[in-house]
């Protein structure tokens, strides 16, 4: 599975990142480097800031009132917190899958081509090709090719989450952020989504936030353990799960708290 391994180039570099919700500091001096074509998992107890950190990477935290951020986040060398960064372009490059599947209450077709249409693609032929390629990438095309005009809310939860991933794939991002993408799914659907992630790794860099430590151990190349807004430990997944350097990490992965 591990085709790229150690030599992957760095795609995301976080330097001295702090985030405050009003007076509350939710992220404390985060420093980390994420490799291209890797799956990086962020684990830690609820409220540790892992989702917040994830949302820093496509600047979704900008939508929340009272958030202030210091530090730098470089994606492919560009500091995304620089003034004058085009958020539309950023979010096209850095897509996000949410905890609960959130297809729009539109047809399957309109969901998948939503992004491409936003970014100026309108020819029906072109949209159809994008649709076929994107649904194909998440193994939904065969299932749904006769239901393209059905409302996306009529699909099963797993299909909805796959559709949301297809919707991202359609805008050809470089990075996929996944915020507990399987928490609404049953164990079998979870496994199938994990298989999909392993396939998508060829073309994308994936960062996944998860509550589920087995999931992190199964799918990721690197793992970061967060606690109370700090990145306590970051390293190759096998090392984090077998020889953690930080006693906090060890206590968490052995289930002493959670």
């Amino acid at each position: 599975m591990d085709m790229v391994g150690e030599s992957s180039p760095e795609i995301i570099k976080i330097k001295n990142l702090n985030l405050y919700y009003g007076d509350f500091q939710a992220l404390q001096d985060i420093n980390a480097t994420f490799k291209a074509h890797n799956i990086t998992a962020l684990i830690g107890p609820s409220g540790c800031g892992k989702s917040t950190l994830l949302r820093c990477l496509n600047r979704m935290n900008d939508l929340i009132d009272g958030v202030s951020i210091t530090g730098e986040v470089f994606i492919s060398g560009q500091d995304i917190y620089n003034k004058g960064v085009d958020l539309t372009q950023l979010r096209k490059r850095v897509g996000m899958v949410f905890q609960r599947p959130n297809p729009f209450p539109l047809s399957v077709f309109d969901n998948v081509v939503y992004g491409p249409r936003l970014h100026g693609r309108h020819s029906h032929q072109e949209l159809k090709e994008i649709l076929e390629r994107s649904l194909g990438a998440v193994h939904l095309f065969e299932e749904l090719k006769d239901r393209l005009s059905a409302n996306a809310l009529t699909l099963s939860e797993e299909q909805q989450q796959r559709l949301c991933i297809a919707r991202l794939v359609a805008v050809e991002p470089e990075i996929l952020l996944m915020d507990e993408p399987c928490s609404a799914l049953d164990p079998l659907a979870t496994l199938r989504i994990e298989e999909l992630m392993a396939e998508l790794k060829k073309d994308y860099t994936i960062i996944i936030v998860t509550h589920n430590m087995q999931q992190a151990a199964r799918v990721s190349d690197d793992t970061g353990f967060m606690y109370l807004g700090e990145l306590m430990e970051f390293g190759p997944t096998p090392q984090i799960f077998t020889r953690p350097q930080n006693p906090m990490t060890e206590d968490y992965i052995t289930g002493k708290y959670g």
Binding site: L63, T88, L90, R91, M96, F98, Y114, H119
Partner: peptide, 18 residues
């Protein structure tokens, strides 16, 4: 209208008006 629709759209690079 649930906020998750708005977030999904903005995360795909849409502007607020779009």
């Amino acid at each position: 209208v649930p906020d998750m629709y708005r977030q999904g759209s903005i995360a795909l690079g849409a502007t607020h008006w779009q």
